[in-house]
Design a protein around this nucleic acid. Structure first.
Length: 600
DNA sequence: ACTGATGCGTC
DNA sequence: GTCGGAC
DNA sequence: GTCCGACGACGCATCAGT
């Protein structure tokens, strides 16, 4: 099948925001795919439409190509300077769009150019077979070692040479995993259901199969070849991760009502890394939240699973948390994240001990437990595992009312947890793989964020927005004021919490404050697209202060490390303050001390 | 052998 | 992880 | 309510350049 044919559907998808239309368009594409001559390409087309080469559960090298590399390739291919390519990307809000417009201009058909005229003019040699494109992309992802960046750029320019401007655009978007067509896995499920079974009503079967075997290419092919019966025959396989159940977040006063109004279970929400453990006899595998195989990172956990899990086969979940040397105190997320590595595993095993706080059992021996109630699953979990320092059960408590929940929340926070997870009980409290519903509701703070205070920062720079934010300034670079040195120190970027309207107003106002170079009283290691005269002040909220080697705030105080903010969110503009009344570096230090003294 | 730029995946 | 917009 | 995408800090891996 010709890739140019496929992108005609992609372009239709881009032209609408209506979900029903998108489902229809995608279904038409899939109907093309299941014609005899195209069947061999179906699986590849599914992956490409997801902006990837293989499924989520497939271990395959990533492209190792992101915006900067593509800019170089575009520059090399067209002879346009890097900075000009970057400017065009800023204007278009998308790397692919920028490339397309450059290539169209090159063809000298700026006004009237269309895919049809391209195909007509160039005929057969410009047909880009899916199999050809796919194998080129495979090659691209496999290049590594010395000189690999040049080789990648060369191969990429070679692919551009095979492509119409339109297909080049989409190829770049695929490589960047950033199709921005308004469709993702759920819509693909709808469209598969519609095009192959003739009705969207069958989506639930297909979706369930996808959740417990998260490979849309496999699902699509199986549906095409074996129909709904084939799909219904898919079961959990130990060794293949299933999509994880997630939690919603709502006002804490609404939680009990949302969980049914009566009693519910709360558990500590550990600040670590979610993991799904698969035990098949002696073979243990660990999978991350996004289903990556992370077994090699935690040999200590693997060993304990072997020793402490009684059942022959099992799939269970927990959170891996970094512990102090005595396994008494839980350490912050940043500590456990040093275990996400390929080298020095044994050394780090000793330096950063971890504990797996297990909280759910999904499969035991030959039996799926997904449809059991939470209580039943938990009972089976506690029966199956003999706890030790390295594998424990999550702390849990039966909650009868909101006040009790708040007390338990405060206790959890004192112990170093991020908050609590509130979970429905009763016969409907099944494990909903791949779902973020209201059977589980997290509580991380009684107000907006986890922090007690908001922080006022002055906007010193910004980037040009991407996608739906094209032409708008977003995110913003915010600084705090160091009153001892009289400097403004870069603290955090903020891009979340703004409405479209907010961004338009900020863009208007900030454009007038644009300056070519940062003033001398600004410290900012990073270089934003645009610098601003420090004037506009905004309030931000976050989960907690973080400390790292890369931050500018406090870096002048002797410690090479500096402070920043985890999960920053814009709250409101502060017209009432001047730039010397914003949060100071000194106040950040105090807040950090308070934050660290809150846990036992 | 080291540093900085870039990419990727965790939260 | 957070959030807002479109349906 | 569901789905999508536009955004954050941070740590490690990889590669280019020295």
């Amino acid at each position: 099948m010709d890739f140019n044919k496929i992108i005609s559907y992609y372009e239709k998808l881009e032209s609408t925001r209506k979900r029903l239309e998108m489902i229809e368009i995608l279904a038409q594409l899939f109907s093309e795919c299941i014609k005899e001559e195209n069947r061999k390409d179906f699986r590849k087309i599914i992956y490409l439409t997801q902006g990837r080469l293989v499924s989520e559960i497939d271990d395959f090298p990533t492209f190792g190509i992101a915006e900067k590399m593509v800019i170089q390739a575009i520059s090399k291919f067209t002879g346009i300077a890097n900075s000009n390519v970057k400017n065009l990307i800023n204007k278009k809000g998308d790397v692919g769009e920028a490339l397309e417009s450059i290539l169209k201009r090159r063809e000298g058909k700026k006004q009237t150019y269309s895919l049809d005229t391209f195909v007509k003019e160039t005929k057969t040699e410009k047909i880009l077979e899916i199999s050809r494109l796919y194998s080129e992309l495979e090659k691209l992802s496999k290049i590594k070692g010395d000189g690999s960046q040049d080789q990648k750029i060369n191969l990429l320019t070679g692919i551009f040479r095979l492509s119409s401007p339109q297909s080049a655009k989409f190829i770049v978007k695929i490589i960047l995993s950033d199709l921005r067509m308004g469709i993702a896995d759920k819509t693909i499920l709808d469209s598969l259901s519609l095009s192959i079974t003739g009705s969207k009503n069958n989506r639930s079967f297909i979706e369930h199969a996808y959740n417990i075997h998260p490979d849309l290419g496999y699902i699509a092919e199986k549906l095409m070849k074996e129909g709904l019966e084939g799909i219904k025959s898919i079961t959990i396989q130990v060794g293949i991760p299933i999509r994880m159940m997630l939690a919603s977040r709502i006002q804490y006063t609404e939680i009990q009502k949302k969980l049914g109004g009566g009693d519910f279970i709360a558990e500590y929400k550990y600040d670590g890394e979610r993991v799904q453990v698969h035990k098949k006899g002696q073979k243990i595998s660990l999978f991350s939240r996004r289903l990556k195989d992370i077994t090699h990172q935690y040999p200590d956990i693997v060993e304990c699973v072997n020793n402490q899990v009684k059942s022959e086969n099992a799939v269970f979940e927990g959170e891996i948390v970094a512990m102090d040397a005595f396994f008494e105190k839980m350490l912050p997320f940043q500590v456990v994240s040093t275990r996400r590595r390929k080298y020095d595993i044994e050394k780090m095993k000793k330096e950063v001990p971890v504990c797996l706080y297990s909280f759910d059992l999904l499969f035991e021996n030959d039996e799926s437990l997904l449809n059991l109630s939470l209580n039943d699953r938990r009972k089976r979990l506690e029966k199956m595992i003999t706890p030790s320092e390295t594998i424990q059960f999550s702390n849990k408590k039966m909650i009868h009312n909101t006040q009790e929940m708040v007390e338990y929340f405060n206790e959890a926070r004192k112990k170093g947890a991020e908050g609590i997870m509130n979970k429905a009980i009763g016969p409907d409290s099944v494990y909903k793989s791949g779902n973020r519903g209201f059977l589980w509701i997290k509580l991380k703070g009684l107000e907006g964020g986890k922090m007690l205070d908001t922080i006022d920062i002055v906007i010193i720079g910004g980037s040009w927005g991407k996608g739906r934010r094209k032409g708008l300034l977003s995110p913003f670079y915010g600084a705090v004021y160091n009153k001892e040195t009289n400097m403004f120190e870069f603290f955090t970027r903020v891009g979340s919490g703004f409405s479209d309207d907010d961004l338009e107003q900020f863009t208007d106002r900030l454009k007038k404050l644009e300056i070519k170079k940062p003033p001398k009283n600004i410290i900012c290691a990073d270089t934003p697209d645009v610098w601003f005269q420090p004037e506009i002040i905004i309030e931000v909220m976050g989960d907690e202060l973080t400390i790292s080697n890369k931050s500018d705030v406090g870096a002048s105080l002797g410690d090479p490390r500096g402070y920043s903010l985890r999960f920053p969110v814009y709250q409101r503009i502060r017209e009432d303050k001047n730039i010397y009344q914003i949060t100071t570096t000194q106040e950040i230090l105090e807040l950090f001390e308070i934050q660290n003294s809150q846990t036992l």
